[in-house]
Design a binder for these strands. Structure first.
Length: 463
RNA sequence: GUCCCCAUCGUCUAGAGGCCUAGGACACCUCCCUUUCACGGAGGCGACCGGGGUUCGAAUCCCCGUGGGGACGCCA
């Protein structure tokens, strides 16, 4: 049987880091087994679903390169099918109308909680042999409930967590269609997973409790039951749960913050999954290695520092052309126009080993395209009067010497020797005058790229 | 409250009874490289939640406890 997995987000917000990992694992599992990966948008909550959120999810998937073989399918477009299935269940007696009002249910829940019980529907409208149901009140539009088995256990072998067993006694008759007739999540999932031929449901840990109900419905429908793999949640950097209010950022935020999709993907792959000691690997490699056996059942804390480390790695490996075009965009956002000289690619060659993010990289090379602001501390430390004669002499040599790293290095060396100084004594003031700060790559290389004219202009500001 | 799940360095993890004196990675510290800062290289610090079993032997299996998390919607 071909493997078919799906990612089924609800479009009520952007694609966040947890969703991205779920998508990645489902995607990789399908790839590994030569199967299909399906994208399904679960938009049955009309009140909260938005087209913007749909787009945000699509954008996030696209940025990460998580392509799907089928879809996106929209559940709202499958309403007729769901309603057909519900009619069939009503006819077969595995579903029934319930005329309890919301208020009535709310009161029930509260009294159960007070008694220390698990709040659940008491089955007052559930048809039973020999049971006489009350007359439905005309002013209440009924919901439809699934008639869950009362006895026995639902047991499945979770591909991540192992065997999980839940007593049917713990389960109540869940609503599968609202009063307005629209089907609810747990029901649509069942129909879709069934009809789309999903073989492995890989999803968040928060769905564990839905699984036995879904299995019961699948059984009632005579459907094949897929395998389930429940992924534990991802905690924020501070160990707290990710939520809309707290740290649950969009994957696109990582794009804006200067992370490469390769880094985010690689990081996510290692969050909860491992392949021995492997830390850095391509998605192609990941798809070959990926398996459900090596997923940790416990929650994982997100660690931005490690993501940065991976990002730095992928920046070093980045394709020259695409790195240059990305960085020039980011420079533009900083209000910096990239001139033809110094050549951006050459500048990046000098700098790409030094940055953790693309934003850092862009910021660090601004001084090649506009005069830097002078760091006061660096200036105070290095731009001392006693160094002026040496710099004066250096300026003279630089005006006429060859313009390459070697020649410039010699020029500095000559001055160092002549004035009986240490190399940094000359290089540091030079660096501060040219870069505005006391840190830069090899100063002679920086000077080569910046050009003689601009170097002399900047050095001459110190007299 | 009830049900379900989880538990190895600060963090991500390796570990399927002897290979564990518990390995790797990020972070941190030291040193080397050096023209500053990075990069890179070499070291270092640092963990099996507690208690009982089972076994010749347990990080690994079982039970209890503790701690954490999830679910309990006419949300998904």
């Amino acid at each position: 049987m071909t493997v078919r997995t799906r990612f089924a987000p609800s479009p009520t917000g952007f694609l966040h880091i947890g969703g991205a990992r779920t998508a990645l694992f489902s995607w990789a599992y399908a790839k590994k087994h030569g199967g299909q990966f399906i994208l399904r948008i679960e938009d049955t909550d009309v009140a909260r679903s938005t087209p913007e959120a749909v787009q945000a999810i699509l954008d996030g998937m696209h940025w990460l390169g998580l392509d799907y073989d089928e879809g996106p399918f929209y559940q709202m477009q499958r309403m007729d099918r769901y309603k057909d299935v519900i009619q069939g269940m009503l006819a077969a007696g595995s579903a029934y109308y319930c005329y309890s009002s919301k208020e009535e249910l709310e009161a029930l829940r509260e009294s159960q909680m007070q008694q220390g019980l698990k709040p659940r529907y008491d089955g007052r409208w559930r048809p039973e042999e020999g049971k006489v149901l009350a007359a439905p009140s005309a002013d209440i539009a009924p919901v439809i409930r699934f008639k869950n088995p009362k006895d026995g256990h639902v047991v499945w072998n979770d591909l991540v967590k192992g065997e999980i067993s839940i007593a049917n006694q713990e389960l109540d008759d869940l609503i599968i269609a609202r009063a307005d007739g629209t089907p609810t999540y747990n029901f649509c999932v069942v129909v879709d997973d069934w009809e789309m031929g999903i073989t492995q449901v890989i999803r968040g840990d928060d769905h564990v409790n839905n699984t036995p109900r879904q299995i019961n419905m699948l059984k009632a429908l005579g459907a094949t039951i897929p395998q389930y793999a429940h992924l534990s949640m991802i905690l924020g950097d501070d160990g707290q749960k990710l939520s809309k209010r707290h740290g649950a950022v969009s994957v696109m935020q990582y794009h804006e913050d200067g992370f490469l999709p390769e880094a985010v993907l690689n990081y996510l792959a290692r969050l909860g999954w491992s392949h021995g000691d492997e830390e850095i690997f391509s998605m192609q490699q990941f798809c070959e290695w990926f398996d459900l056996d090596h997923i940790t059942p416990s929650a994982a804390q997100f660690n931005t520092e490690k993501l940065k480390w991976l990002n730095a790695h992928y920046i070093k490996q980045a394709d020259k052309q695409s790195l240059a075009s990305d960085i020039s965009l980011r420079l533009a956002q900083l209000g910096v126009t990239v001139a033809a000289q110094p050549d951006l690619s050459a500048v990046l060659d000098l700098y790409k080993e030094r940055a953790n993010t693309l934003n850092e990289l862009a910021e660090s090379i601004v001084y090649f395209y506009q005069k830097p602001a002078m760091d006061a501390l660096a200036a105070e430390k290095h731009l001392t009067d006693d160094i002026k004669p040496a710099l004066q002499k250096l300026t003279t040599i630089l005006t006429t010497c060859d313009w390459n790293a070697e020649a410039i290095h010699h020029a500095i060396n000559d001055v160092v020797t002549e004035f009986q100084l240490k190399f940094p004594k000359v290089a540091m003031p030079l660096r501060v005058l040219i870069c505005g700060i006391a840190q830069s790559p090899s100063i002679d290389q920086v000077m080569v790229l910046l050009g003689r004219e601009e170097v002399l202009a900047r050095v001459s500001t110190f007299k």
